[in-house]
Design a protein around this nucleic acid. Sequence first.
DNA 1: CTTACTGCTTGATAAATATCAAGCGCTCTG
DNA 2: CAGAGCGCTTGATATTTATCAAGCAGTAAG
Lengths: 239, 239
Amino acid sequence: MHEDEKSRLRRLPLFREMMTPTFDSLMEIAYAQTFPAQLELIRQGDYADFLHVIVEGSVELYATWNGRSTVMGVVHPVSTFILAACVCDEAYLMSARTLERSQIIMIPVADVRVALRRDPDFAVAGMRELANGYRTFVRHAKNLKLRNSQERLAAYILYQSHGSGDPDTIVLPVEKRHLASHLGMTPENLSRSMKALKGHGVAIKGTRVTIIDRTRLAAVAAPDPLIDGPQIKTAIAAT
Amino acid sequence: MHEDEKSRLRRLPLFREMMTPTFDSLMEIAYAQTFPAQLELIRQGDYADFLHVIVEGSVELYATWNGRSTVMGVVHPVSTFILAACVCDEAYLMSARTLERSQIIMIPVADVRVALRRDPDFAVAGMRELANGYRTFVRHAKNLKLRNSQERLAAYILYQSHGSGDPDTIVLPVEKRHLASHLGMTPENLSRSMKALKGHGVAIKGTRVTIIDRTRLAAVAAPDPLIDGPQIKTAIAAT
DNA sequence: CTTACTGCTTGATAAATATCAAGCGCTCTG
DNA sequence: CAGAGCGCTTGATATTTATCAAGCAGTAAG
């Protein structure tokens, strides 16, 4: 594992406040691996053996049941995933696959557990990480139960416009069928919802979405930090 | 706070493994309070000031948006809730109200945070608590996205039949309209789904549900520990 | 024993969403 | 460049779910 990778990891919320010896001991056992696109990293039902940290690329979390499948989320660098399964020592609830060529750091769960017991700051950071994941899924469930599909799409577009260069032009970061699944709808329904939003301040050309009238779009989405996350505030504020 | 209450709390997963001095110091500041039914304990959007532990009664977690409302879960004794908001020091994502007369222990979050830093075993227990909450909501989201309403109801009935006396007779623990909201449907839809399940091994009389043919019910629900939780295994196994 | 209330059910209807089947428009490859 | 493949769109249709409006049943109060 290279020095610059180590220092990138060190800056992660999960590792930032832990003691240096604990961090170094973890890094000695950890190893980095680069995976091609579309590779299944984790299969739901299996048991956790490594804590994963994504350093480069992107990973999709998805779940299947009875022949159906749905996207549960997308993980971007630099963040950890499946910490919960590591802590509980239970089966993964979700599968994970790379969306593109990705670099992943893998740390054996046994060593993570030892470090947690040894280093209270690390344990507290782990709690915060888990608490954030918890809240993400509470918000996801609220989104699904309280909004209809058009409202979810409008909120998604608004959310994507926070930060990142021109706030009025966004390029969809994933294929539309994956986005549809993430938002809990079919690709056909997404396509029609896109068209419907053209009457509410949005222009769509392929994978590029332009916000023409933020106020009108917000009227559909009714953005709410308690569903969309705190970042939505900057998205509403943007001109 | 009475001695027997303290020892009940002490047996909780969250407090079981922490050091006695840490526990005692928390208990000195904590206080118990009894609330009547239908009382709003927590309002979404507010900031956490107390960690809540329910000792007696039951509490419903719900969320609202844009005039709509939905039940997110029900908390039974003895367990904690809103730990995530305490850890993150952010606004509650959900509201909470008592369903019946309930006794709640309240511990100021500042003291909880101090104890977490001081006692690694407490921090690890907190992680496990949060990880379980996280997984509960992942499963809730999977349930909503992968199953239709009839399948969700069938799985719920199967789930309720685990343990607790006669496994073939269950009495709904909450009002039907609350159950409907929890399962992500309208009361009318729940009523019709109930009727539809009569053709799949279930008999319903008011609030009492009898499982006549577990195999046929399971064929609709397709129970899965990765959605319904590990307890579902005993529910399937029951005769 | 009524009466009123509240929550559940039922029926009719509407709206949202999914499914099925083409067709279109990329991009990649030979 | 031609053709194939893949994902997106579109239209027609079916299914699921929600809404609206009564009606019904159990419970509590007068």
